[in-house]
Design a protein around this nucleic acid. Sequence first.
DNA 1: TTACGATACGGAGGGTGCTTCCGTTTACGC
DNA 2: GCGTAAACGGAAGCACCCTCCGTATCGTAA
Lengths: 196, 196
Amino acid sequence: MTTSTAPATGSGDARRPMRADARRNYDRLLEAGRVAFAERGGEASMEEIAKHADVGVGTLYRHFPRRIDLVEAVYRSDVDTLVAEADKLVDLEPWSALSGWLQAFIRYAQSKRVFLTELREAFEKNPELALDSRVRIGAAASSVLVRAQQAGAARTDIDAADLMHLIGGMCMARAATLEQNERLLGLVLDGIKIQP
Amino acid sequence: MTTSTAPATGSGDARRPMRADARRNYDRLLEAGRVAFAERGGEASMEEIAKHADVGVGTLYRHFPRRIDLVEAVYRSDVDTLVAEADKLVDLEPWSALSGWLQAFIRYAQSKRVFLTELREAFEKNPELALDSRVRIGAAASSVLVRAQQAGAARTDIDAADLMHLIGGMCMARAATLEQNERLLGLVLDGIKIQP
DNA sequence: TTACGATACGGAGGGTGCTTCCGTTTACGC
DNA sequence: GCGTAAACGGAAGCACCCTCCGTATCGTAA
């Protein structure tokens, strides 16, 4: 594991590990944040998120000093999940892995649209966040795509950057719904697939 | 004049004209809003804007019931200005008019970047705003471009849509400064110009 | 010119949401 | 068990959006 969502405490460094209750609350808050942003986007209030995590606002602010820090943490953890998904799919045959990962990507992209304004702010405050995520997602995309290509299941005249560009752009289009995106993904997959 | 920034009272319709003080305050508020958004973007508060216009908040809210209404009005008026600029330049020779208008366009685009978040919200609430502005700006662009083309001063294998796409995209690029954009505009103009 | 009704003004205050502060509670090493 | 550092919780501070209504001003008709 590399750059990750892990709070404040690296592998074997100076600082102690978090206390058990702190760790538990951190995880709860992150999850509550994810749900809240997904459901209510920028409308989600800090009080609301704390309540959902069964925690006082004070605790929320101890872990995430500013609202934007929570936004960033949720985003980082979503990217982690997406990247990890590529590893999980390694057991499937190459084509299924590619197709499965792109589905995961679409869900990821869809969830981002809801709190895009907040996210944009986070990127502005911390440009490294955008760059870093792009690289990591690109690597994951590449890993599933190349495997499919090497297995002769996907055409070789596209690369991961093309794919992200195509599908990412599609997902960001103004009125795109999840269903529509999944349908269009099917179309794209048909275009990429090499019939056995 | 067509769709415009004019508040609540058309040409010769049912409603009376605005009272003189109301008209004056409306204009002041619009101007104060423009300045405030340009300087402080989304940070600008309603109290602050009202004070700058030498007016109470109550008056601000009478004219612009919600913050977003002020954002929209400022934006509409900026578009008005940009579109009117094309008419003003009609006395110049065709190439100067084209070049001058594109400079105005760049200033317009630059000012939009500052309160992009607010603007995005306004577009979301009122899609007709984005569409309408695009059409009007496109028409203005077309008028100056076509004239330059007919005068043999600009190459004819591009149209207004291409131009807006190129220059608009350039202005929206993440870290673009006004100077950089003006320099790049020079570059684009060189590419479009037909030497006499 | 004055008087009067319609219109507009102003700013105190309600409501909400982010953030801070600090007294209380809890986990963990001895 | 005990002591201490770490973490918790929520009341209160603050800033901002917006509303409300008593007061002031404009425009008009006598």
